[in-house]
């Protein structure tokens, strides 16, 4: 029996994937000086998470709602940024397009990494039932400078570009017991998402529209993240274009770093994950009409 165990260990070593560790001395030093670093990376990862989330039809049910607990189906109000006036299905409908006719990915997970390496952060994993879909997506990732790897079962892993301009938060405050830190997103890097999405992949192009609407007019996109109870639960908020574009996304998941977004209608059974989403397109700097006008100028 022990021989079989040794053989197993040897095979495991032989087939071990190349690690994607994100540790370099400089980053470790940065983290040492600033323990808040990881929180920022959650926010950074959520930039892409937002993109992916918005691109998946299953999430459509939650977008524009105040909040839906996907596990229970219960609709309830979630803690919102201050002075958020109202939801806006119209803006989504106008600029996001028809979600329901998109080809769907049947499973996707995004896992925030703890540290960046050479300008990269985050690990994204996912799998498609449709092989061609997956290949197309991976090609899009690689074409955008992402490093992608896959295994024989078809699951791929990609590293995500670091979208934060600085690890130092712009500001920090406490709200309802949570420490909230705000970071500035590197819009140059964020624009690579546009490239990523611009690969005839309709799901992602939809999100590109959102980013363009929100990213061009006001320099200095910002992201916010909230870390709760030492990663036991993570709630994060992504806010683009600073105070002028209050596009927010709240994600909660009891499994740190493993947010699984399964196919619409098949949430709890397939993933076992609890997932909640709140997306708010209302304004606290611009009015809705002003936002729409801005969007229209962008074509």
């Amino acid at each position: 029996m022990m021989e079989e165990l040794k053989t197993y260990y040897k095979e495991q070593a032989d087939t071990q994937p190349e690690p994607f560790l994100a540790v370099t001395p400089a980053e470790a030093t940065v983290t040492k000086r600033r323990p808040v670093h990881r929180v920022g990376l959650v926010a950074a990862s959520l930039v892409l998470m937002l993109a992916v989330t918005m691109a998946i039809p299953g999430v459509r049910a939650a977008v524009g709602e105040w909040m839906i607990d996907i596990v229970t189906g219960e609709k309830r109000e979630m803690t919102a940024p201050p002075d958020v006036p109202e939801k806006s299905d119209e803006l989504l409908d106008k600029y996001v397009g028809d979600w329901d006719t998109n080809k769907s990915s049947n499973l996707f997970s995004v896992r925030p990494a703890k540290l960046p390496r050479e300008g990269w952060t985050g690990t994204m994993r996912g799998g498609w039932s449709d092989y061609e879909d997956q290949q197309a997506f991976m090609a899009a990732l690689e074409g955008s400078g992402f490093r992608v790897r896959t295994d024989f079962s078809g699951v791929f892993t990609a590293e995500i570009r670091h979208p934060l301009k600085s690890d130092v938060p712009l500001r920090e405050w406490e709200e309802e017991g949570y420490i909230i830190r705000e970071y500035e997103v590197d819009t140059d890097t964020a624009s690579s998402y546009h490239t990523l999405f611009d690969d005839n992949n309709r799901l992602l192009q939809i999100n590109m529209n959102l980013l363009q609407v929100s990213g061009v007019n006001v320099p200095g996109e910002r992201a916010e993240a909230v870390s709760v109870a030492g990663w036991e639960t993570a709630i994060a908020v992504y806010r683009e274009s600073g105070e002028f574009w209050p596009l927010s996304l709240y994600l909660t998941n009891p499994i740190p770093g493993d947010i699984v977004i399964p196919e619409y209608g098949d949430y709890p059974e397939r993933s076992g994950a609890r997932y909640s989403l709140h997306c708010d397109l209302s304004g606290d700097g611009y009015t809705l009409e002003e936002l729409i006008a801005i969007a229209e100028t962008l074509g």
Binding site: Q12, Q16, P17, P19, F20, L21, A22, V23, P25, A28, T29, T31, K32, R111, A113, K114, L115, T123, R125, T157, G257
Partner: peptide, 24 residues
């Protein structure tokens, strides 16, 4: 790390954290 956690990606996270702690 892979011996202790569920998959390679998780093991990478754990190793990464371990390096960070070692440096600290």
């Amino acid at each position: 790390c892979r011996q202790m956690v569920d998959d390679w990606a998780e093991a990478e996270d754990m190793a990464q954290e371990a390096y960070l702690r070692a440096w600290e």
